[in-house]
Amino acid sequence: MSLLAELASRHCSPLRGQDHLLPEDKIRGYLNALPDWERIEDGQAISKTYRFGDYYRTMAFVNALAFVAHREDHHPDLSVHYDRVVVRFSTHDVGGLSLNDFICAAKVEQLG
C-alpha cells in the first residue's frame, strides 16, 4: 500500500497542543506522497490548487470536499473560483501541521 493510500485510509482525531505538531522528517515524507501539494506560510500550512473545465465541475469538487471535511471534522480553508479551487490545510489547535492535515489532503487527492 502506498503512503498516499495509507493516509487516505486513516481518520482524523481531535488534536490540541504543540505536542501534535509533526516533525520535519514526517512532514517531508508525507508531502512527497501528495502530488503538487506545497508548504506555505513559513511551513505552517499545506496547499494545492485544483483546476477544472467549468464551474459545475468546480462546485461538484467543493461539495465532495465539504462532505469529506465534515465527516473527518477537519476543515480546510478554500478559495473557490470559476475553474479552480485552492485548498489549504493547517491545524489551528496545534499551531501548524498535524497528521490530520495530511490525512485530509490524501482524501482530497482521491477526489481530484
Score class of each variant (00 low, 15 high):
S2D: 13
L3A: 14
L3Y: 05
L4V: 08
A5N: 08
A5F: 03
A8H: 04
H11F: 08
H11W: 04
H11Q: 11
S13P: 06
R16F: 12
R16C: 12
Q18P: 07
D19Q: 14
H20D: 02
H20N: 13
H20I: 02
H20F: 07
H20A: 06
L22N: 10
D25R: 09
D25N: 12
I27M: 12
G29N: 12
Y30T: 10
Y30W: 07
N32C: 10
N32A: 15
N32Y: 00
N32H: 03
A33I: 07
A33E: 10
L34V: 07
L34Q: 12
L34H: 11
P35T: 05
P35G: 04
E38D: 10
R39I: 01
R39P: 04
R39M: 12
R39T: 13
I40P: 08
I40G: 11
D42W: 00
G43H: 04
Q44S: 12
Q44M: 14
A45W: 00
I46W: 05
S47W: 00
K48Q: 11
T49H: 04
T49D: 14
T49I: 15
T49M: 09
Y50Q: 08
Y50K: 03
F52R: 01
F52T: 07
G53S: 14
G53D: 15
Y55H: 11
R57I: 04
R57L: 13
A60M: 04
A60D: 14
A60R: 12
A60E: 15
V62P: 07
V62W: 04
N63W: 06
V68D: 14
A69V: 07
H75L: 07
H75E: 00
D77C: 00
D77Y: 05
L78W: 06
L78S: 11
S79K: 06
V80I: 15
V80A: 09
H81C: 08
H81D: 13
H81W: 09
D83G: 13
R84P: 01
V85K: 06
V86S: 10
V87C: 02
V87D: 06
V87A: 08
R88E: 13
S90D: 14
T91K: 09
H92G: 06
D93I: 00
V94I: 09
V94K: 04
G95R: 03
L97F: 13
S98L: 10
L99C: 00
D101K: 00
I103N: 08
